[in-house]
Nucleic acid binder design. Structure first.
Lengths: 194, 194
DNA sequence: GAAATAATTTTATGTTTATAGAAATAATTT
DNA sequence: AAATTATTTCTATAAACATAAAATTATTTC
């Protein structure tokens, strides 16, 4: 298991996650349903749901963490009730596309390219092979094209030299760079266009 | 990609549960966040999230079951994109108090009383004991009071007789019935008032 | 102060679920 | 047809979680 060492500082998606996790159990949904009709004590809920008091208490703690219910001491009963405002606010605030889009950590859109290139690069800096086609070839081409300056004019001989640093089959790669619109050519002169 | 086989007895809370379970995992939230920015293939997502393709596929299946994403075949890529409408519809439709209140199965509000009475009743129909106080005593009293007709006048001797069928300590119970306003008394005559 | 009652926390256990490797399926290119 | 690539399904495993009994805490009644 690799990834995200999840930052210790609570980010907005922690809040989302707590909210959804609270709602992702059938007995907790039943509890909310009951509390939407009338406030109740832990013991009453336990009887109504045929669960132990400790289990209900555990569920209520999760719902409470998510801000969905709140308790009011009454005698030695703890009367829980639905926190309706939180429910509606949450659903409106959290479930919009704009907000969701921000939930994603800054996605490294380059990472796919980087992985492909890493996989294909030998330790001498040359490519072990050329991907036959598709997305991986494009990733490699995006990598190679960076060896050229945008706008600068290169004679074909120089283009070949630069490409050869990556792979011996400079002819194929040069053609790909043209085909996929990374370069343009006129009278044996090449220039990078993106 | 399979899609929601939605159970034969599918009730509204199944739908809610599927929806929330789909959203209750941090990697699935990250996927949604990314797809809110741009559609992507399984492999691209796997690379961006540093997860295996099979894991991402598994997550996408859950999101798809919940109607949150949909896929479009493109070459041999499956390009997934956010199903924005579903997200907003769900949040508005599902998270209202009226709807939540219906999510709860018809709650048997009597069940607490019934359980208490069952626990305290011996096989001969008599009470094994009298709860000292609190909710359980009230449940027992609500049970006993049903032996009386509302409005009908009972002399004390008859009240004692009826109560004795439940418990020998008729004096305490008679007093409780008055104290807790199940009966009223005047000149040695009793009547049930609720 | 002692007994009774309600709720929470702790601890243990069985179930569910996320994960990834391997195998199977599907589509594409050569 | 054979090789390549992407995705899904199958299988196994480890982590997360629901559950309840027991212990603990807190409150009330007597």
């Amino acid at each position: 298991m690799t990834n995200n060492a999840q930052t210790s500082t609570s980010n907005p998606s922690d809040e989302l996650l707590t909210f959804f996790k609270a709602l992702s159990d059938s007995n907790r949904l039943r509890i909310l349903g009951i509390l939407a009709n009338q406030p109740m004590s832990v013991e009453q809920l336990a009887t109504a749901l045929n669960l132990s008091a400790s289990t209900v208490s555990h569920h209520l703690a999760k719902l409470s963490d998510a801000g969905l219910v709140s308790a009011k001491a009454e005698g030695y009963y703890n009367i829980y009730s639905l926190n309706q405002t939180a429910l509606e606010e949450m659903s409106q605030r959290l479930l919009k596309k704009e907000n969701l889009a921000q939930v994603a950590e800054p996605v490294d859109l380059e990472s796919f390219d980087q992985k492909v290139v890493r996989d294909y690069l030998a330790s001498n800096g040359k490519l072990k092979a050329l991907p036959a086609q598709g997305k991986k070839l494009l990733a490699i081409l995006r990598y190679i094209i960076q060896a050229f300056e945008i706008g600068k004019k290169y004679p074909e001989r120089e283009v070949n030299e630069i490409i050869k640093k990556f792979h011996d089959d400079f002819a194929s790669i040069r053609r790909y760079l043209i085909d996929y619109q990374f370069m343009q050519r006129e009278n044996g002169i090449y220039w990078r266009i993106k």
